[in-house]
Amino acid sequence: MKKRIIVLAAAALMSVPGFASGIIPGDMTFKLRAAYNLGGMAPLDMPAAIRSIDSYNLTASLLLGVDAGWNFGSGWGIQSGLHLENKGMEAEISTKGYHMQMVQGTNSLEGFFTGHVHQYVAAVMLTMPIQATYKLGCATIKAGPYVSALLNRNFRGLAFDGYLRQGNPTGPKIIIGNKEGEWATYDFSDEVRRFQCGLNAGADFDLSRGFGISADLNWGLTGLLKSSFTVVEQALYPIYATIGAFYRF
């Protein structure tokens, strides 16, 4: 299975020059898509300081786009397009001794936070997938890389209802309250990468001559935040499932 995905991805990459020059023979289809992104930004290895995920809200993460596909015959083809989408999440976690730093201008407060963190992430982006496709009955299996350019970036939140031990666990204990003026806000929006890339795999299912539904998995390979940014210690990867529908013409 893994091999096949690699083969598909390689096929997609190799077709790029052909795609660009528009000399590929075979029939061409266009798909107009609407879909819903479902997922989050997750560390690959959850730090022990995160004790529980208390709430997780799906933000309105819609995708609208158009894809063009070429079939070369014998089932194989490639597909690419442009998607306008947003990916976001809103989560509340409980922490115990979670390393964090609040930076504001020239002042900073660094230490270990035990309490609650409300995290909001949202980004609007233009995504271009390049996928190898293989037709199997009414399904078109697709896989390949994607790149996203972020048009707007949000990574902010607040720490509340807990305390920060400054510097180390024996440092001054700063009680952080649970209302405005008593809690600590942070905004690292500028530290979100402008470009993301990742891998996508999924399938389009034809339901009728024109309509169909789709399911995809998008696995980010680049961390959400710039690697030069060290306040949030764990790299967070955007991992999203996308379900949607399309109209083919």
Partner: peptide
């Protein structure tokens, strides 16, 4: 998705207290 995320990242055992 939940299974997927659980696979990616599990909640670890609670660390022992470091405050004294």
């Amino acid at each position: 998705l939940a299974i997927l995320l659980a696979f990616v990242s599990c909640i670890k055992d609670e660390p022992r207290n470091s405050e004294c």
